[in-house]
Structure formats: structure tokens, C-alpha cells
Simulated assay, not measured.
Amino acid sequence: MGDHARHDSVRHSYDTVAEEYTTRLHAELEGKPLDRALLTALLEQTEPGAPVGDLGCGPGHVAAWLAEKGARTVGVDLSAGMVEAGRGRFPQVEFRQGDLLELPAEDAEFGSLVALYTVIHLEPAELPRAFEEMARVLRPGGPLLVSFHIGEEVRHLDEWWGHSVDVDFRFLDPAHVAVLLEAAGLTVEMKLERTHYAHEAETRRAYVLARS
């Protein structure tokens, strides 16, 4: 399957589950204290007044949480269904439909970036381009927080909450991700791992904080 076809299947899958995803997960940060702490740390290091980009934002619940803390947020997602659901629920967030490999953003537009469990849908060969795009749209000195599942497996879903989908979740090695971020011109400042919370899928999670 070509790159565009793969991205189309991911887009269609998230379009299919967008409404249910939004209903189920719109408040998920309430049960993730460590994630909230890391996002707070990110905000503290964001240039005052500079927008925060939430890449692979889904319905924008993380961007909305950041907006509640006073940030100006822009959510970017591949799925038009997710963007539409987000606009309906979180009017305080600016949404843009777009691909991680060609972000709909200007050079150095964002003071900081969040990319939570979104690079897991890319092919391994696409990761360098995605990180180069993140570096492009970050202001000098701006932080980037990336999260993903740890491992080497690929989990495929053809059914999600009763909906027919076609999407892969690729687990990643934190050391490899750090190397790719550095190769894209970013400086890795922190790597953290945690176990899953009780309400999450049973995977180990990694968080990598890098800076432009």
C-alpha cells in the first residue's frame, strides 16, 4: 500500500470513530496526572503569546485543556471527522486539517508543540520527515513533547468500538525516536517512561521532550 493509501485508511478510520472517540475521551486528561504535569511544564517554557500546536489532535481535548490554562492553541489532524467534532465541542481551539508530513503551518509559527500518540500511525521511513516538519514549524528554543507506546510490535485494528476500520498502531523505541529527533535538528532534553493507567490500554508509554 502506498503512502497516500495508508494515510487515507488512517484518515477514514478516525473519521469513522470520531463522534464516539470524542464522547469517550474528551475528558481523559482528568485521569492522567503525569500527562498534565508534562503539559504544564511545556506551557511554562512556551514563549508568552506564542501559539501551541497540538499535532494529531483528534477532537482537540488536549488543545482545549491547554487553552483553559491560557494558551492560544491550534489543533492539526488528518481526519476531517475529528476536526469537525472538535470544532463542535471546543470552539476555543483553532483546528486545521492536515498531515504530519506536510503540516499546514508557517515556518516558526508555534512556540511549542505537542504530539501525543500520533507518530504511531506513521511508517518507520516517514518519521524523519515528520520530525523535520515539527522542527520547521517550531520557533527557536521552542519545546516539543512527543508520546508513544514502547516496543517493536504493530497492532492492527479492523474493528474499533464496533466500527469497521483499517489502522495500524506502531510501537516505538525511545532511543531510536531520540536519535531521529536529534537528526531533525532538535535537542532531546528528557525521556520518561511510565506504565499504563488503569483505564488505558496495557502498554508502556514513553514521553520525549525536545527543543528547537
Rank of each mutant, 00 (worst) to 15 (best):
1 M>W: 06
1 M>C: 11
5 A>D: 08
5 A>N: 03
12 H>L: 13
15 D>E: 09
18 A>I: 11
19 E>I: 13
28 E>G: 01
28 E>R: 14
38 L>M: 12
38 L>S: 06
38 L>W: 04
50 A>I: 13
51 P>G: 09
54 D>W: 06
55 L>W: 07
57 C>H: 08
58 G>Q: 05
59 P>T: 09
67 A>T: 00
68 E>A: 14
69 K>D: 09
71 A>H: 04
79 S>A: 15
80 A>P: 10
81 G>A: 07
82 M>K: 07
82 M>G: 09
86 G>S: 10
88 G>D: 03
92 Q>L: 10
93 V>F: 03
96 R>Y: 11
97 Q>S: 12
98 G>T: 08
107 D>Y: 12
111 G>F: 07
114 V>E: 04
115 A>W: 05
119 V>T: 14
122 L>Q: 06
124 P>L: 12
125 A>N: 09
134 M>C: 15
136 R>F: 10
140 P>W: 09
152 E>V: 08
157 L>S: 07
159 E>Q: 14
160 W>N: 00
160 W>M: 03
160 W>Y: 12
163 H>S: 08
164 S>G: 05
166 D>G: 07
167 V>K: 00
167 V>A: 01
169 F>W: 14
171 F>A: 08
172 L>N: 01
175 A>T: 10
178 A>G: 10
183 A>H: 09
187 T>F: 00
194 R>F: 03
194 R>P: 10
195 T>F: 08
197 Y>G: 05
199 H>D: 09
200 E>I: 04
201 A>T: 02
205 R>I: 07
208 V>S: 01
209 L>M: 14
212 S>R: 15
